[in-house]
């Protein structure tokens, strides 16, 4: 029972990071219909920005916020300068450009920061060995609680933005029918740039939390979280923000349970494998994810 609770709790905490990143993928996909393959690498670069701000003496919280601002600028800048231009030339071009960014950002981070010894990344939350409370026998580390709370809070804010604000309405309108959105006078360019910006800012926050958990930064920081996030978006349905969040949490919990209860068979190495295979099976029965609509066809 305690073990079960422990796995669920740990799973929800990690899952909320996947959910945050997955939500970023979904926001971009709904806006432009593209998979941003570089989502994880953009988050990684922003985490290095955060680290750099912190290294220059700013408080960590401020650094993370600045990292998110930098993320927004990076995401929006990429959309304006590359994505929308190449989208005019060829549909597949956007995917290729996002792969190019995946490679480019990864290499750039290595070139700028990689020659330092592995950097210490402080956590946003208390993370000493004894920073935890015991509830029903399960260990609730403050850091895990903090991650979960912050991630869920940000996602809650985003959902408010989508549902309650004029700008959110514009984002939903663009996702639903870009042509009509332009006709009613929505500045679609601004909306798309913001979508990319918001996604990258969320990535920056997840990066800071993943980095804090790992304790150090490398250019590989976000690769595995990105895979989990794309798995979550796939499972939830690529055009369903709510689906992405639920799926992210479910995958977090599921992999903890699988790894926890079948350590001999699955253990650490195959955790990711379990998640991926599950998704494959789900897609067989629901080819557009659990909560997605069937109209998603583009790459």
């Amino acid at each position: 029972m305690e073990r079960l609770l422990q796995y669920i709790f740990d799973g929800l905490s990690l899952g909320s990071i996947y959910a945050l990143l997955a939500l970023g993928l979904v926001v971009v996909f709904r806006g432009t219909g593209h998979l941003n393959f570089a989502q994880g690498e953009m988050a990684m670069i922003c985490t290095f920005f955060t680290w750099q701000f912190h290294a220059w003496g700013l408080p960590l919280v401020v650094s993370v916020l600045l990292g998110m601002v930098a993320g927004f600028a990076l995401g929006a800048g990429v959309e304006v300068s590359l994505i929308r231009r190449v989208a005019k030339k060829s549909e597949a071009g956007v995917f290729v450009v996002s792969i190019a960014m995946f490679l480019g950002f990864n290499s750039l981070a290595g070139m700028i920061w990689g020659n330092l010894p592995p950097e210490e990344m402080p956590s946003l939350f208390p993370d000493e060995p004894d920073d935890f409370v015991k509830i029903f026998g399960a260990v609730w580390r403050y850091e895990y609680i903090g991650i979960m709370v912050v991630a869920l809070l940000l996602m809650g804010l985003l959902f408010l933005l989508f549902a309650r604000t004029k700008f959110g309405l514009a984002m939903r309108a663009v996702a639903s029918n870009p042509e009509s959105a332009r006709l009613v006078g929505i500045p679609t360019g601004l909306v798309l740039a913001s979508s990319w910006g918001i996604a990258a800012a969320m990535g920056a926050l997840s990066g800071a939390m993943v980095g804090g958990l790992a304790g150090e930064l490398t250019s590989l920081l976000m690769f595995t979280p990105f895979i989990y996030a794309s798995a979550s978006a796939t499972l939830g349905g690529f055009d369903s923000p709510g689906g992405a969040v639920i799926a992210g949490l479910a995958i977090g919990v599921g992999e903890q349970l699988a790894a926890g209860y079948a350590p001999g068979w699955i253990g650490q190495e195959l955790r990711l494998g379990v998640a991926l295979v599950t998704i494959f099976v789900v897609l067989l029965f629901k080819p557009s994810g659990l909560f997605g609509s069937a109209k998603v066809e583009r790459v």
Partner: peptide, 26 residues
């Protein structure tokens, strides 16, 4: 049965899965 972006991601999963499977102790 799977199309578009979902198919791309399934193949992505295959690519990620293969090395982990090869390393699997079983």
């Amino acid at each position: 049965r799977i199309k578009g972006i979902y198919l791309a991601l399934v193949t992505l999963a295959v690519a990620v899965l293969f090395p982990t499977l090869v390393k699997w102790k079983k």
